[in-house]
């Protein structure tokens, strides 16, 4: 497997990366961990003239707490997230999800920013960032902006990141006291991507669910937030009954994918099963 010929350049700053993107007019791509992009280039599904390696830009790396948010640099690897004490303490769903992405080798190299920008409909991170209520920071030629995770995934492999933009960080609000979160996944047996992945964050007020957010991946052509399922839980006790109601309500009104691993109705069924399992974990 040989990719088409391209130039490689290491960027030392976000600004430099943006100007390189601009100067190549759609014919350049950013390289993070490379675990989504390089395979597609080997298959010649992607043939950029220039690869801009942004993985070494220091400001894009690391996990820190800042103004009530946990800020995850876009070039932080899945492994770094899986072993972050800060996330384990404050947003354990990120650690849980990071541990089930790909395999050791993929986790060592793949980055959260790369995964989000690639927006594979079966990737794990999209469900998690949606359920966490994260904001995604994007730098472009006109400066920086943030996009709510809910609005970030715009369709099949498409996101709010523009042609000349760099996704720079993910800002996860520190969940209020009484919050719990988890990620439940049914892996596609060959690739181990999510056939269905369900991330849930709950805030409890006594024994009632005062707030909740649910993100699904693998189900539709883009990850989505499931407000129907959320509505079935809000204000309710977390019981067998409310959990079943949420499972029955989930993945409604979305176009559900179908392939040789899971047809539409089975996938929809799985969405309910894994929402249930996530909620049972949090009970």
């Amino acid at each position: 497997m040989v990719a088409t010929s391209f130039d490689y350049q290491k960027a030392t700053s976000v600004e430099q990366a943006i100007s390189l993107l601009q100067s190549h007019d759609g014919d350049a791509k950013l390289l993070a961990g490379g675990h989504s992009l390089i395979p597609t280039m080997k298959l010649r599904l992607n043939s950029p003239a220039l690869l801009i390696d942004v993985s070494k830009i220091e400001e894009l790396r690391g996990i820190r707490e800042e103004d009530g948010h946990i800020v995850i640099g876009a070039m932080t690897t899945h492994y770094e997230i899986a072993s972050s004490d800060l996330l384990a303490k404050k947003a354990p769903m990120f650690v849980e999800a990071a541990k089930v992405i790909g395999d050791i080798q993929v986790r060592n190299k793949g980055t959260i920013g790369g995964s989000l920008a690639h927006a594979d409909p079966a990737a794990d991170w999209p469900a998690v960032v949606i359920a966490s209520g994260a904001k995604i920071k994007i730098h472009g030629p006109d400066g920086a902006r943030t996009v709510d995770a809910d609005d970030f995934f715009t369709g099949f492999y498409t996101t709010a990141v523009g042609e000349n933009d760099v996704l720079t960080s993910i800002h996860v609000p520190v969940p209020p006291k009484g919050s719990k979160s988890t990620y439940a996944k049914f892996p596609q047996p060959a690739s181990r991507y999510a056939l269905v992945g369900c991330a849930v964050q709950l805030t409890m007020d006594g024994n009632k669910v005062s707030d909740c957010s649910i993100g699904f991946t693998g189900v539709s052509d883009a990850a989505f937030r499931d407000s129907n399922a959320e509505a079935a839980l809000k204000g309710k006790e977390l019981s067998g009954e409310s959990i079943q109601a949420a499972a029955d309500a989930c993945a409604d009104g979305v176009d559900i994918m179908s392939d040789h691993f899971a047809s539409e109705d089975y996938r929809k069924h799985l969405a309910g099963v894994f929402l249930k399992r996530a909620l049972e974990n949090l009970k």
């Binding site: 497997m1 490689y8 290491k10 390289l31 490379g34 390089i38 390696d53 993929v106 190299k109």
Partner: peptide, 10 residues
Amino acid sequence: VKSCTMLAAQ
């Protein structure tokens, strides 16, 4: 690391 998914340049 899977060396088939990393460029020598990287």
